[in-house]
């Protein structure tokens, strides 16, 4: 099997939406992720919910809270990933979640079950390089996606980027997830300094909310990650699946122009 992540980056820039399983309910979230995948998403960041998501803004906090109230667990989320694969979704699915629920599940078991369900990698925002060895020992072949931020020193960038697998998740602003009116100043320099240290693709997330902003970032980066706008637009729709199709189509379209 060719590595699904490498495959996905053949046509850059890629579009990577985020959506949490269990929101607005489990069934619809599975349909939404399927619709995103089949209408333009190149990778999907599949959200696992946590009671205390300290890197997230109000929109994602509220959505993941609803998912928890609906009874989402890692077990149910992994069964949902399996179901999404069964529906013929072939693009990479990256599980994004906080560390404690993974620890409670058991790291090795979690990684094994995630791989078996069809996940391709992990994003754990509260696991910086200093603390990642425990997870990496458990993770086997699947990549733990490394994150870099505008505050990362060049020394840190070098050390972190050198070990990166899959792609780099570059946080475009200091802050939490959420849409911003404009793209951060200095983003192109930031991307350039990351590229000095690695050949893996660099994807930019945090603050990108419109197809126009995606196009602007896509001109600099290898991929664009869209979380809050995706959750807000689809979550507030009366027909989430149709909205997901349109949303993916618009962003993919803007990036292809």
């Amino acid at each position: 099997m060719t590595n699904r992540i490498e495959q996905a980056f053949k046509n850059r820039p890629i579009f990577m939406p985020y959506f949490p399983l269990g929101y607005p309910n489990l069934e619809i979230s599975i349909d939404v992720i399927e619709a995103l995948a089949k209408n333009g998403a190149d990778l999907i960041e599949v959200g696992l919910s946590f009671s205390d998501p300290l890197a997230d803004g109000p929109v994602i906090q509220q959505a993941t809270q609803v998912a928890l109230e609906n009874g989402i667990t890692i077990q149910k989320a992994l069964a949902a990933v399996k179901e999404i694969r069964k529906r013929g979704v072939e693009i990479p699915l990256i599980l994004m979640g906080y560390y404690n629920p993974m620890l409670a599940y058991g790291l090795e078991q979690f990684v094994r079950d995630a791989q078996e369900a069809g996940a391709d990698g992990f994003i754990v925002p509260d696991l910086p390089a200093e603390e990642s060895s425990e997870f990496e020992n458990a993770v086997g072949d699947l990549p733990l996606i490394r994150m870099l931020a505008p505050t990362s020193s060049s020394e840190r960038m070098e050390k972190i980027a050198r070990k990166a697998k899959g792609f780099i998740y570059l946080v475009s602003v200091t802050g939490i997830t959420g849409e911003r009116k404009t793209i951060a100043d200095g983003l192109s320099d930031l991307i350039a300094s990351v590229r000095e240290h690695t050949s893996v693709p660099v994807c930019v997330g945090f603050g990108i909310g419109t197809p126009e902003q995606a196009k602007e970032v896509g001109a600099m980066a290898d991929g664009v990650i869209v979380g809050t706008a995706c959750v807000r637009t689809i979550g507030s729709s009366e027909n989430p699946v149709e909205t997901a199709k349109e949303f993916a189509g618009q962003f993919r379209g803007a990036l292809s122009k």
Binding site: D126, E131, A149
Partner: peptide
């Protein structure tokens, strides 16, 4: 990347924060 002081108390402690905050720590 190592800390100046021991970041752990036995197996407890550590620095489980987003990368954005690591330079501030």
């Amino acid at each position: 990347m190592s800390t100046l002081l021991n970041p752990k108390f036995g197996k407890y402690g550590g620095q489980f924060v987003p990368e954005t905050l690591m330079p501030a720590l």
